[in-house]
Simulated scan of single mutants.
Amino acid sequence: MLNSEELRLFLAVIREGNMLAAAKRVGVDHSTVARRMTQMERTLGARLFDRSPRGVTPTPAAHALVGYAERIESELLAAMSSVAGRDRTVEGTVRLAAPEACAAHLIAPHVAMLRARHPGLTLELASESRAASLSRREADIAIMLNPPPRGRLVTRRLVDYRIGLYGARDYLVQAGEPRRAADLARHGYISYIEDLAGFPEMIALDELLPGADICFRASSSAAQHVAVAAGMGLGMLHVFAAAQDDRLVRLLPDAMTVQRSYWLVMHADLEGLPRVRAVVDFLDDVMRGLRDQL
């Protein structure tokens, strides 16, 4: 009969695509994963993976097993949540995935507050340019730019924020500061690499200035910020980050501003865990305090 540990390792292999990465993910030896997968195949009387030097490829039998394994995983997490919820001690590790600018400018500066509240809690903050997959357990909590369409997820709007057009002071002295929308065509712009933008909402420039002359693209919002501050051109930047940089000037705020939202998303099975609840409360307090800046 299969056991929960074998199913946990099986899902790790499915999610990582090879046994070495799966072993690192769950904290065991590669040989242990290989041995347990072989044992599972013997128990089931079916081959689960085609093995090659490049990794492993799930067979139809493996794909058939995934849904059952994930349901068992969810039930175990729900059981842990129910039991853990009776003990209000907050300790352990919580992984939070958030867009780069949110992670760097809104969350990281305040993590000392979380540590002071809960010394036994470790926060892992993963800066992501794409939506973390909660179904693959890439994170316990995710902050996203739009709510996911489906899944056993708890989703709610966390906070609204603005993106505005900025240029460097020195650049504007040389190139001229745009005073009206017609002046914008004289400038070059910094924006995202479109096929690497994890959310279409990241590319605010296309919404306001379709066909703008793009002179530099980057997948990182921080790299765009630095390029604008260095005088390469104009760019749509997060107001909460750009407003703190004295090198930058905000331009045409009435016309060149878009509003976006951060959404808080977590797996329903984890909502009741004290450590997860503590991080959610921390995020609510931080965003509440920053609302005017956003």
Rank of each mutant, 00 (worst) to 15 (best):
R180L: 09
R217H: 10
Y171K: 01
G198D: 07
A212N: 03
F216L: 13
A229E: 09
A181Q: 08
D245G: 10
A181V: 06
A241P: 02
M256P: 00
E201Q: 14
L264Q: 14
L234P: 01
M256C: 06
Y192W: 09
G211T: 11
I203K: 01
D269V: 11
L234F: 01
D246R: 00
F199K: 08
D246E: 02
A229T: 02
I214L: 01
A243F: 06
C215H: 07
M256L: 06
M232T: 08
G188K: 07
M202P: 02
L237F: 03
Q224W: 09
D269I: 04
F240C: 02
D245H: 07
D254M: 01
R179M: 13
R186D: 13
I193F: 15
M266S: 13
M232E: 07
V249Q: 03
R247K: 03
Q259K: 10
R179Q: 15
V258Y: 01
M256Q: 07
A175P: 09
A227S: 11
E194L: 03
A218D: 12
G198N: 12
A242R: 04
D269F: 12
Y192T: 10
S219H: 11
G233R: 03
A222H: 10
I214C: 05
M202Q: 07
L251T: 01
D246T: 05
Q174F: 06
L172Q: 02
F216S: 07
P200C: 07
E177A: 08
R260I: 03
M266F: 15
V226A: 13
P178E: 05
D183T: 00
D206Y: 15
A197D: 11
M202V: 01
I214Y: 02
D213K: 10
R260A: 12
Q224V: 08
A255E: 15
E194I: 13
A175H: 13
D254S: 07
M266C: 13
A181H: 12
R180S: 14
V265W: 05
G198S: 10
Q244G: 14
M256F: 12
I203F: 04
V228E: 06
Q174T: 14
A255F: 09
D245W: 07
R250N: 12
L209D: 13
A255Q: 15
Y262Q: 09
